[in-house]
Amino acid sequence: MARRVERKPVVAVGVTIVFFAWLYLPILAVALFSLNDKKSLSSFSGFSLRWYDDLVHNEALLDSLVASLQVAAAATLGSLVLGTMLALGLERIRGRRGNLIGAVTLLPLVTPEIVTGVAALLLFTGIGLKLSLTTVVLAEITFSIAYVTVIVRGRLAGIALEVEEAARDLGCTPFQAVRLVILPMLLPALLGAGLLVFALVFDDFVLAFFTTGVDPQPLPVRVYSSIRFGVSPAINAIGTLMLLASALLIVAALVLPRLLGRGTSSLDLITGGRR
């Protein structure tokens, strides 16, 4: 659609350019100084991979990395299953009960993470669960279900009810209609939601901070405790890797669903959908 807006708003364009510089400058500085061969964070004296080499030999950090990957994978799987069930149920059950359940599942999205984290900590200690990676996974699933539900519901809304009716007319039981017809159509949305949740959980600090046990701690929790004591090139190195990993995951979450099918992608969730 051709837009007929005459002049470029100069001030707004200026703000936008400055914004992008402001957005990327700190991140690029971290990446640049992770490759510095001296400990300085302000003068770049030479290219070196020594901080990355240190990382590879840091057992505790590697344990944390593995722990974070496990937590993210388990939470992604769990929230995909629960979130999809919820989306299917909510999309077809209308009325007051559906609205109430829908609202409750969206609550974690608008609750500050610190509140969710504190509440989860109280619940787990209250019922006598020892804090560990398992409790982190439970908390992260609870938090991530909403993302999956929103994305899958967005896609479901685009699938005509007639498709399901047709499957039923051809002899499918309701369950078969979902399994053989609806789920395959949801695949791009599930892929996008899965990648998004994996990235969010992998990077998540606040929930993990409140619900983790002592050893091994998820990567962001460990990184946080070293950041508190100051800035160092080693943190630059691990930070750069974390930024790269999540950037790749998010890009995949945005792009892959579009490649797989004309469905909605996670970007539509974020921007409120295409019209």
């Binding site: 990077d203 962001p220 974390m242 930024l243 999540s246």
Partner: peptide, 18 residues
């Protein structure tokens, strides 16, 4: 979107370093 959904912690750290 991409940098914003990447680690909040690391982005705060980036400012601290800067």
């Amino acid at each position: 979107v991409v940098p914003f959904f990447a680690s909040y912690l690391i982005r705060m750290y980036a400012w601290k370093a800067l």
